[in-house]
Design a protein around this nucleic acid. Structure first.
Lengths: 297, 297
DNA sequence: AATATTAGATGAATTTTACTCATAGGTTCT
DNA sequence: AGAACCTATGAGTAAAATTCATCTAATATT
């Protein structure tokens, strides 16, 4: 029967390149792996690798097994870990997914008291997901998702934690800096700076520019909020961020928030979970803290 | 190490109730399972079951393992099966998820020529998903999703296959039967019959009644399209279905399609897949057939 | 209340499997 | 051509999984 053990071998070979190195990593001999996979191949009736020079190249079957391994091994590891930790005291881990770049600072303010209250619970924040945050949640890669765009979906549950306004950030010297709001066309000569995610997931496109058929002079991406604000204050472009975040930096930098459209764009940060699952007590505590934690300083 | 084998035992005991019966199902002795789990318990440092009379009740740890088993075992089985089938000839299986009740008849028209072309490929159609069709696709429970409501999402890819109009179905005797379209308020005295899914996923609610703040006299659900149409033709209520489906039954039953709102509600059936995965050739063929297959007779 | 029945646990014996060692047979690099 | 690497393989050995026989406890039966 195909066992976790076999998948561990295939995974290790993929990771380390050769059988020999994989064997070292697994504290076994090269021979053990070779024999083990040979037996699996007989069972499956198909080879896992084909020799390419002195390297091993995965066959189609092997590729399928590697996919399976990548999906399944982390789940084994996590379950095993959770059980062992629960067994020896009240440990645990909270795996949080983030789909909201600027929320990071808010999250830090939640995590900090949480870690104090539960010194034995680890918090793990992840930001890149093969199938998006939703896929990570459904695939048991994370236990909680922080997102401004909840996709209501069977088996999932969302809890709004705070509302904020999404605004344009411009340097004080910018022509629209004094206006109470901007129109999409006002940005036609600007460089727009955003986080590096698909345009469809950026509200300034999906809810502001695109519906109006407007566009910007250029679109470029930057990873971190701080650099982004530096660029804006240096007059190198404009960006769109939560209003509270802009206000926090306003005292240090010559930047101004401006409402997007007459009515503004308002968003709600949500926490998402798999519904109908018994949640450990510390997870509920985390939610409580999150609800109480204000995003204003 | 926690192995697939252990999960198989836990799963079997949950399914068959007792260790002894589980042992029979697995072609092993009761003793083997008992020893096996005992060893696992030592490894984990936590008991899997606690005895309740002469039954076994899962502990928290055991429950966690059962969850893991339920998620992971089907994936093992499917991968193993696919590989073995590929090895011995050109077999395979296409697991299709349906989120579109009335599309069933259309799907039959696609499946039929497909099965002729690939006598060795099995088609498996599933309709109920713990985490919705999207979750099933991301969780590798299905390979293809038929849905009228694609949720564009990282790692997923959709292909529109046909467009149709979603219309109200009323008996010929109904007051609106002669009109070219209906307003939401026109249905305030009607019983609305739908498939048994959440109201939020029904277009007649989300795109017609709810935005207008309108409601119906009563809402009831019926599983099958045929009975639904029988009920409508008997004057027991109205329903909302694809126009082509109504037209097909119009020659046998005294029913009439009426446009929903002045502009009508138009939908697009999509096929969804996990993106960036090597698709077996027969899956591409299926897509080809699907695109060519018209929903009109 | 006594007895039979059903279920799981356990120790020892045994079979089966997994692993190591030693070595052979390729491939790549210099 | 030779050194340095790889993987494959057969034989022996260590480790494990499994069975068998037996024991204990809970539930049914009469």
């Amino acid at each position: 029967m195909l066992e976790r053990h076999h998948l561990a071998i295939i995974h290790a070979v993929d990771k380390h390149g050769t059988l020999t190195e994989a064997a070292n990593a697994l504290h076994l001999t090269q021979s053990a792996l070779s024999h083990g996979i040979k037996k699996l191949e007989v069972h499956l009736g198909a080879p896992v690798w084909q020799k390419d020079g002195r390297r091993l190249r995965l066959t189609q079957a092997g590729q399928g097994l590697l996919n399976l391994a990548n999906r399944v091994l982390p789940q084994f590891e996590h379950s095993e870990q959770v059980i062992q930790q629960i067994a020896q005291g009240q440990r645990g881990a909270l795996r949080i997914g983030m789909e909201c770049h600027p929320c990071y600072q808010w999250l830090l303010k939640v995590v900090s008291p949480f870690l104090q209250q539960y010194p034995d619970v680890d918090v793990d924040v992840r930001q890149a997901f093969q199938f998006g945050g939703l896929g990570a949640l459904l695939g048991y890669d994370i236990d909680m998702l922080v997102t401004p765009d909840p996709l209501f979906q069977k088996g999932l549950e969302y809890l709004p934690v705070f509302e904020y306004e999404h605004v344009l950030v411009v340097p004080e010297s910018h022509p629209v800096a004094g206006q109470s709001w901007v129109q999409p066309q006002d940005l036609s000569d600007d460089v727009l700076i955003t986080y590096p995610v698909e345009a469809s997931r950026l509200d300034i496109f999906s809810q502001f520019l695109t519906p109006a058929g407007a566009s910007v002079k250029r679109h470029r991406t930057i990873e971190t909020t701080e650099i982004m604000l530096q660029m804006v204050s240096a007059g190198r472009g404009v960006s769109a961020l939560p209003k509270w975040l802009v206000e926090q930096h306003q005292k240090d930098l010559p930047i101004v928030p401006v409402r997007l459209g007459k009515k503004g764009i308002f968003k709600n940060i949500h926490l998402g979970f798999r519904a109908g699952e018994a949640r450990p007590e510390y997870q509920n505590t985390f939610i409580e803290i999150a609800k109480k934690t204000d995003h204003l300083i």
